[in-house]
Protein backbone atom coordinates (compact mmCIF):
# COMPACT_ATOMS: atom_id res chain seq x y z
CA UNK A 1 0.00 0.00 0.00
CA UNK A 2 2.74 2.42 1.03
CA UNK A 3 4.58 1.63 -2.18
CA UNK A 4 1.50 2.49 -4.19
CA UNK A 5 1.10 5.82 -2.43
CA UNK A 6 4.71 6.88 -2.96
CA UNK A 7 4.52 5.72 -6.56
CA UNK A 8 1.38 7.75 -7.09
CA UNK A 9 3.00 10.79 -5.50
CA UNK A 10 5.87 10.57 -7.94
CA UNK A 11 3.53 10.10 -10.86
CA UNK A 12 1.73 13.27 -9.79
CA UNK A 13 4.75 15.32 -8.74
CA UNK A 14 6.51 15.34 -12.09
CA UNK A 15 3.51 16.57 -14.11
CA UNK A 16 2.83 19.10 -11.33
CA UNK A 17 6.35 20.43 -11.71
CA UNK A 18 6.00 20.56 -15.48
CA UNK A 19 2.72 22.47 -15.23
CA UNK A 20 3.98 24.93 -12.62
CA UNK A 21 7.03 25.55 -14.78
CA UNK A 22 4.87 26.30 -17.79
CA UNK A 23 2.66 28.72 -15.88
CA UNK A 24 5.16 30.37 -13.52
CA UNK A 25 8.22 30.76 -15.72
CA UNK A 26 7.11 30.56 -19.34
CA UNK A 27 10.38 31.89 -20.75
CA UNK A 28 12.68 29.59 -18.82
CA UNK A 29 10.38 26.62 -18.34
CA UNK A 30 12.86 24.06 -19.68
CA UNK A 31 15.60 25.05 -17.24
CA UNK A 32 13.16 24.98 -14.31
CA UNK A 33 11.51 21.71 -15.24
CA UNK A 34 14.78 19.92 -15.95
CA UNK A 35 16.20 21.05 -12.61
CA UNK A 36 13.15 19.83 -10.68
CA UNK A 37 12.90 16.56 -12.58
CA UNK A 38 16.56 15.70 -11.92
CA UNK A 39 16.02 16.31 -8.22
CA UNK A 40 12.84 14.23 -8.24
CA UNK A 41 14.49 11.36 -10.08
CA UNK A 42 17.18 11.11 -7.40
CA UNK A 43 14.56 10.98 -4.62
CA UNK A 44 13.26 7.38 -4.96
CA UNK A 45 16.72 5.92 -4.35
CA UNK A 46 17.27 8.22 -1.38
CA UNK A 47 13.88 7.34 0.10
CA UNK A 48 14.50 3.63 -0.36
CA UNK A 49 17.88 4.00 1.34
CA UNK A 50 16.27 5.91 4.20
CA UNK A 51 13.52 3.32 4.75
CA UNK A 52 15.60 0.18 4.42
CA UNK A 53 17.38 -1.49 7.34
CA UNK A 54 20.98 -0.54 6.65
CA UNK A 55 23.76 -1.88 8.85
CA UNK A 56 26.30 0.51 10.34
CA UNK A 57 29.02 -1.11 8.24
CA UNK A 58 27.48 -0.23 4.91
CA UNK A 59 26.58 3.27 6.15
CA UNK A 60 30.19 3.96 7.09
CA UNK A 61 31.45 2.27 3.92
CA UNK A 62 29.34 4.49 1.69
CA UNK A 63 30.53 7.59 3.50
CA UNK A 64 34.15 6.43 3.32
CA UNK A 65 33.91 5.75 -0.42
CA UNK A 66 32.21 9.12 -0.92
CA UNK A 67 34.93 10.88 1.05
CA UNK A 68 37.56 9.03 -1.00
CA UNK A 69 36.11 10.08 -4.33
CA UNK A 70 35.83 13.68 -3.13
CA UNK A 71 39.41 13.42 -1.95
CA UNK A 72 40.34 12.15 -5.42
CA UNK A 73 38.70 15.20 -6.94
CA UNK A 74 40.61 17.44 -4.53
CA UNK A 75 43.95 15.65 -5.05
CA UNK A 76 43.71 15.96 -8.82
CA UNK A 77 42.61 19.61 -8.83
CA UNK A 78 45.77 20.73 -10.71
CA UNK A 79 44.90 18.59 -13.75
CA UNK A 80 41.58 19.82 -15.22
CA UNK A 81 39.08 17.13 -16.20
CA UNK A 82 41.36 14.33 -15.09
CA UNK A 83 39.46 13.12 -12.04
CA UNK A 84 39.03 9.70 -10.42
CA UNK A 85 35.47 10.41 -9.17
CA UNK A 86 33.66 8.35 -11.81
CA UNK A 87 36.16 5.52 -11.41
CA UNK A 88 35.63 5.43 -7.64
CA UNK A 89 31.87 5.46 -8.09
CA UNK A 90 32.01 2.61 -10.62
CA UNK A 91 34.32 0.55 -8.40
CA UNK A 92 32.05 1.09 -5.40
CA UNK A 93 29.09 -0.03 -7.49
CA UNK A 94 30.97 -3.08 -8.77
CA UNK A 95 31.76 -4.34 -5.28
CA UNK A 96 28.89 -3.01 -3.12
CA UNK A 97 25.97 -2.98 -5.52
CA UNK A 98 23.89 -0.55 -7.53
CA UNK A 99 22.37 1.30 -4.61
CA UNK A 100 25.73 1.97 -2.95
CA UNK A 101 27.00 3.14 -6.35
CA UNK A 102 24.14 5.58 -6.80
CA UNK A 103 24.53 6.92 -3.26
CA UNK A 104 28.29 7.34 -3.58
CA UNK A 105 27.95 9.09 -6.93
CA UNK A 106 25.26 11.53 -5.97
CA UNK A 107 26.66 12.29 -2.52
CA UNK A 108 30.12 12.87 -4.00
CA UNK A 109 28.58 15.56 -6.18
CA UNK A 110 26.91 17.28 -3.21
CA UNK A 111 29.94 17.09 -0.95
CA UNK A 112 32.61 17.99 -3.46
CA UNK A 113 30.56 21.03 -4.39
CA UNK A 114 30.83 22.20 -0.79
CA UNK A 115 34.48 22.69 -1.80
CA UNK A 116 34.15 23.58 -5.49
CA UNK A 117 30.97 25.67 -5.22
CA UNK A 118 27.32 24.69 -5.19
CA UNK A 119 25.16 25.82 -8.06
CA UNK A 120 22.28 24.85 -10.29
CA UNK A 121 24.61 22.22 -11.80
CA UNK A 122 24.72 20.23 -8.52
CA UNK A 123 21.49 18.24 -9.17
CA UNK A 124 22.70 17.40 -12.68
CA UNK A 125 26.03 16.14 -11.37
CA UNK A 126 24.21 14.16 -8.67
CA UNK A 127 22.00 12.63 -11.30
CA UNK A 128 24.74 11.77 -13.80
CA UNK A 129 27.23 10.34 -11.30
CA UNK A 130 24.44 8.50 -9.52
CA UNK A 131 23.18 7.05 -12.79
CA UNK A 132 26.70 5.92 -13.77
CA UNK A 133 27.01 4.15 -10.41
CA UNK A 134 23.58 2.59 -10.75
CA UNK A 135 24.29 1.15 -14.21
CA UNK A 136 27.71 -0.13 -13.12
CA UNK A 137 26.07 -1.87 -10.18
CA UNK A 138 23.57 -3.59 -12.44
CA UNK A 139 26.29 -5.01 -14.72
CA UNK A 140 28.88 -5.53 -11.98
CA UNK A 141 29.67 -9.19 -12.67
CA UNK A 142 30.61 -8.84 -16.36
CA UNK A 143 32.51 -5.63 -15.51
CA UNK A 144 34.61 -7.49 -12.97
CA UNK A 145 35.43 -10.31 -15.36
CA UNK A 146 35.98 -8.47 -18.64
CA UNK A 147 38.68 -5.80 -18.96
CA UNK A 148 37.52 -4.75 -22.41
CA UNK A 149 33.95 -4.25 -21.21
CA UNK A 150 35.27 -2.27 -18.25
CA UNK A 151 37.23 0.11 -20.48
CA UNK A 152 34.24 0.43 -22.81
CA UNK A 153 32.04 1.32 -19.85
CA UNK A 154 34.68 3.79 -18.64
CA UNK A 155 34.72 5.56 -22.01
CA UNK A 156 30.92 5.42 -22.19
CA UNK A 157 30.60 6.98 -18.73
CA UNK A 158 32.93 9.83 -19.68
CA UNK A 159 30.84 10.54 -22.75
CA UNK A 160 27.52 10.16 -20.92
CA UNK A 161 28.63 12.54 -18.17
CA UNK A 162 29.71 15.11 -20.71
CA UNK A 163 26.53 14.74 -22.77
CA UNK A 164 24.26 15.14 -19.73
CA UNK A 165 26.17 18.17 -18.48
CA UNK A 166 25.98 19.71 -21.97
CA UNK A 167 22.20 19.39 -21.83
CA UNK A 168 22.41 21.45 -18.66
CA UNK A 169 24.62 24.06 -20.33
CA UNK A 170 22.28 24.44 -23.28
CA UNK A 171 19.09 24.60 -21.22
CA UNK A 172 20.68 27.23 -19.03
CA UNK A 173 22.26 29.31 -21.71
CA UNK A 174 19.28 29.25 -24.03
CA UNK A 175 16.15 28.61 -22.06
CA UNK A 176 15.15 26.17 -24.77
CA UNK A 177 16.84 23.14 -26.23
CA UNK A 178 18.63 24.72 -29.16
CA UNK A 179 20.07 21.83 -31.15
CA UNK A 180 22.80 23.87 -32.91
CA UNK A 181 24.04 25.16 -29.58
CA UNK A 182 23.93 21.63 -28.18
CA UNK A 183 26.09 20.36 -31.02
CA UNK A 184 28.40 23.35 -30.57
CA UNK A 185 28.61 22.68 -26.83
CA UNK A 186 29.45 19.04 -27.44
CA UNK A 187 32.14 20.01 -29.91
CA UNK A 188 33.53 22.71 -27.62
CA UNK A 189 33.57 20.23 -24.74
CA UNK A 190 35.08 17.46 -26.87
CA UNK A 191 38.62 17.83 -25.45
CA UNK A 192 37.14 17.54 -21.98
CA UNK A 193 35.02 14.57 -22.99
CA UNK A 194 38.14 12.88 -24.27
CA UNK A 195 39.98 13.67 -21.03
CA UNK A 196 37.03 12.33 -19.00
CA UNK A 197 36.89 9.13 -21.03
CA UNK A 198 40.66 8.60 -21.05
CA UNK A 199 41.01 9.36 -17.35
CA UNK A 200 38.15 7.00 -16.55
CA UNK A 201 39.79 4.24 -18.57
CA UNK A 202 43.18 4.85 -16.97
CA UNK A 203 41.81 5.02 -13.46
CA UNK A 204 39.52 2.02 -13.86
CA UNK A 205 42.15 -0.19 -15.48
CA UNK A 206 44.79 0.79 -12.94
CA UNK A 207 42.56 0.84 -9.90
CA UNK A 208 39.91 -1.82 -10.36
CA UNK A 209 42.31 -4.70 -9.59
CA UNK A 210 44.18 -3.29 -6.55
CA UNK A 211 41.11 -1.60 -5.04
CA UNK A 212 39.00 -4.65 -5.81
CA UNK A 213 41.53 -6.73 -3.90
CA UNK A 214 41.37 -4.36 -0.95
CA UNK A 215 37.58 -4.34 -1.00
CA UNK A 216 37.33 -8.13 -1.29
CA UNK A 217 39.73 -8.49 1.59
CA UNK A 218 37.70 -6.05 3.71
CA UNK A 219 34.54 -7.93 2.78
CA UNK A 220 35.89 -11.27 4.01
CA UNK A 221 37.74 -9.82 6.98
CA UNK A 222 34.73 -8.00 8.39
CA UNK A 223 32.01 -10.26 7.00
CA UNK A 224 30.07 -7.80 4.84
Amino acid sequence: MKKWISGAIFCLLIPAVVLSGVYLFPARQYAFISLCVTVLSCLPVFIRFERKETGTKSLVLISAMTALSVLGRVLFTPIPGFKPVTAMVVITAMYFGAEAGFMTGSLSAVISNFYFGQGPWTPFQMFSWGLLGLIAGLISEPLKRNKLLLSLYAAFSGVLYSVIMDVWTVLWADGTFNITRYVAAIIAAAPFTVIYAVSNIIFLLLFSKPIGKILDRIKTKYGL
Binding site: A64, V70, I111
Partner: peptide, 9 residues
Protein backbone atom coordinates in the same frame (compact mmCIF):
# COMPACT_ATOMS: atom_id res chain seq x y z
CA UNK B 1 26.38 9.59 5.84
CA UNK B 2 26.89 13.17 4.67
CA UNK B 3 28.26 14.36 7.98
CA UNK B 4 30.56 11.35 8.29
CA UNK B 5 31.89 11.91 4.78
CA UNK B 6 32.41 15.60 5.53
CA UNK B 7 34.32 14.68 8.65
CA UNK B 8 36.40 12.04 6.82
CA UNK B 9 37.64 14.45 4.17
Amino acid sequence: VLSMALRFI
